[in-house]
Amino acid sequence: MQREKSQKFALWRRQLGREKELWFWTLLFLVWWVFFFLIPLYGIVYAFFDYTPGRALTLDRFVGFKNFISFFQTRDAWMIIRNTLVISTLNMTVGFIAPIILALQLDELRQGLFKRATQTISYLPYFVSWVVVASIVTTLLNSDGVVNEVLMNLGLINKPIAFLTTGKYFYALITCVTIWKSLGWSTILYMSAIAGIDQSLYEAGAVDGISRWGMVRYITIPCIMPTIVLLFILNIGNFLNLGYEQNLLLGQSTTQEYWEIIDTYVYRYGIQMGRYSFSIAIGLMKSVIGLILVFVSNAIAKKYTEYSIM
């Protein structure tokens, strides 16, 4: 018995000796992990306190769910939830269908320079930053920008349209710009799904005499359906993560009622105004709902397709 134990111990020591160097590096990785993941994660407890930097978190500063409740008592709460839902829904419908159509259109082209060039050009906006996009859009859509100028020269309008500063245009504006930036890039997964379709299906279709539209309708679309469903489900997981960069950059003070979403609100209240506990609470609420969405969408994806991100 005693002997067995000491043998085990010796074995364990030998293993540790062999792994000594790996443990050293692992400890370094873990230090980073604690510093840049775990401690910031612990910071979410501030949401339940009345936190002021530099003062210790004592139990008498514990306020429970007060920060969460006070968010729903603000007048902004429903405006923010509305904007988040509207912009997300637009992205998930119009923004989701557009790349599928473009991929099908590209597939109808013969292989060659034109197809490659169109694809490469359509990727360009994806590679530039949101700052560049915002700057370009501002120049184009300003009251003295090219778009207004052309519309006036064509006689369609009498005075310039204030695209950027009119609130009711903002949803359309942000959806168009977001699609413009990501359209070409989003086609990549569809294009690779289309490339993976078995050629014999088209041969069989040709033998049966189906038309070109028939091939798209009865072969291409059904074959890429799993990809479409999968990407749609994964998008649900990202429903709340609509970009805030474009909203911060393109939003004007006159259109704030339409561009303020959860992330921009957290940024403005937390970093600009220093209401830390309040904004952490809002961010936490969003993260929890987002995490639930990710798990639910992942579970659905697992059930209906062979695919899972976990």
């Binding site: 910031p40 994660l41 501030y46 957290v266 904004s279 952490i280 961010g283 990710v294």
Partner: peptide, 19 residues
Amino acid sequence: RLFLITMYVSGGMIPIYLW
């Protein structure tokens, strides 16, 4: 696995900023 967790959970903008 420890690093995979960081893909799904994070402290969020403000706790990271304060830290």
